[in-house]
Structures are given as structure tokens and as C-alpha cells.
């Protein structure tokens, strides 16, 4: 599956909207098992993305992803800045070779793993990115794939990120980064018209 430049831009814009509409929900999730700022962090990033896209219309997919990546790296800080930033930066590089969405998302997920020194099952956003990448490959991404991926983080014990300090007590709560990533892929589904 491919996504052209216009649709990819729409994807990002929808992502921005969703995060901005749910900033306090993300903060609340992060209050339970982190330091309560995931919404604020992401919102700062989304404002930067909007600014950057308004300043210069990206010429191609690679430039679009790079713009998103740089905005997030330079404005978010904390964990999600380098994580989303690396994912989108790696996608930008990959977009020079291919426009296949499944491949791009897989490269993004691999970027998360590299930057976060983490993998699936650690109660991080990778638990959403990786299943989504896989279902894109088999062409069956759906709302329920995203939902299930997100919900799977609820009963996990965090072993990376701030929530890991809580050890067993991190169980029973959704991972905030997985929720923001779920917004990203829900936005994608909307663009894909599903």
C-alpha cells in the first residue's frame, strides 16, 4: 500500500488534531504511571509540526517526514522527542527508496527500538507500532488492530521508560506513548478511508 504526499500530509494533520484534542487525556494516562506530561510534550511537538509545515510546503515524502521528525526532535524533548523523531527521521530516509507504507512504518518501528533500546512487550509505544507495521504488511490494518495493540499494554509490566520504576505497579494502566501512537494510526485509518 502506498500513500501519496497529499494524503500523508493529511495523515499528519489528523494526528496533530487528535493529539491536541486529547492532550489532557494523555497527561492523565502519564500521571498514573509516569510524570504527567506526555500530553503536554506531544502538544508542544504538534504545534511545532504545524508551524514547520506552514512555513514550507514539503516537496516530497522524504521532506515531509523529515520536517515532522525535526520539529519533534527540536521541540519535544523527554522520551517522545527522540522516539517519534527517530521514527520519522528513519522513515524519511527510507522514503527516498520506497513509498510502501508497510515498509516505512516497519522502519519507523525499528527506529524506536534502536533509539529506545527496547522491543515489543516492554509497555512502550513499540507495542502499537510493531503490530501496526505487521498488519500493514499483510494488508489488514483496522481499527481493532490498533485498539487491541493499545489495550495489550494495559496488563504489561513496564520495563522501559519512567513507568518501569513502578515495576509491578505499572500493571493495569494503558501506556501513554501507546495511546498517542494509537492516535497516529487511527488518523492513518481515517485517511485510508476506514
Amino acid at each position: 500500500m502506498e500513500l501519496n504526499l497529499a494524503d500523508t500530509k493529511k495523515w499528519i494533520e489528523l494526528f496533530v488534531e487528535k493529539v491536541e484534542a486529547n492532550t489532557s487525556e494523555l497527561n492523565e494516562l502519564d500521571t498514573a504511571i509516569g510524570d504527567g506530561d506526555h500530553g503536554s510534550n506531544m502538544a508542544r511537538g504538534m504545534a511545532a509540526v504545524t508551524d514547520a509545515l506552514a512555513k514550507k510546503e514539503p516537496a516530497d515524502l522524504a521532506e515531509l517526514y523529515k520536517t515532522v521528525a525535526f520539529a519533534m526532535i527540536q521541540k519535544v524533548g523527554g522520551a517522545p522527542g527522540p522516539l517519534y523523531g527517530t521514527a520519522f527521521l528513519d522513515m524519511s530516509k527510507k522514503a527516498k527508496e520506497t513509498t510502501d507504507l508497510a515498509e516505512l512504518v516497519q522502519v519507523g518501528s525499528d527506529g524506536l527500538k534502536r533509539r529506545g533500546q527496547s522491543d515489543v512487550g516492554m509497555k512502550t509505544m513499540i507495542d502499537v507500532w510493531q503490530p501496526v507495521a505487521e498488519s500493514l504488511k499483510s494488508n489488514d490494518l483496522s481499527k481493532s488492530v490498533v485498539e487491541n495493540a493499545l489495550n495489550s499494554t494495559k496488563d504489561m509490566v513496564a520495563t522501559k521508560g519512567r513507568a518501569s520504576y513502578l515495576e509491578e505497579k505499572s500493571k493495569g494502566h494503558l501506556d501513554p506513548g501507546s495511546q498517542s501512537s494509537a492516535y497516529l494510526f487511527e488518523a492513518l485509518l481515517e485517511v485510508l478511508g476506514e
Binding site: D35, D37, S40, N41, R44, I73, Q74, K75, V76, G77, G78, A79, G81, P82
Partner: peptide, 11 residues
């Protein structure tokens, strides 16, 4: 200095 309780950015 980053934001309150938030790591500064790489740049």
C-alpha cells in the same frame, strides 16, 4: 535546561 521535568532537546 529542558521543560519542567522533561529532558532538553538534542539541538
Amino acid at each position: 535546561a529542558g521543560e519542567v521535568f522533561t529532558s532538553p532537546t538534542p539541538d
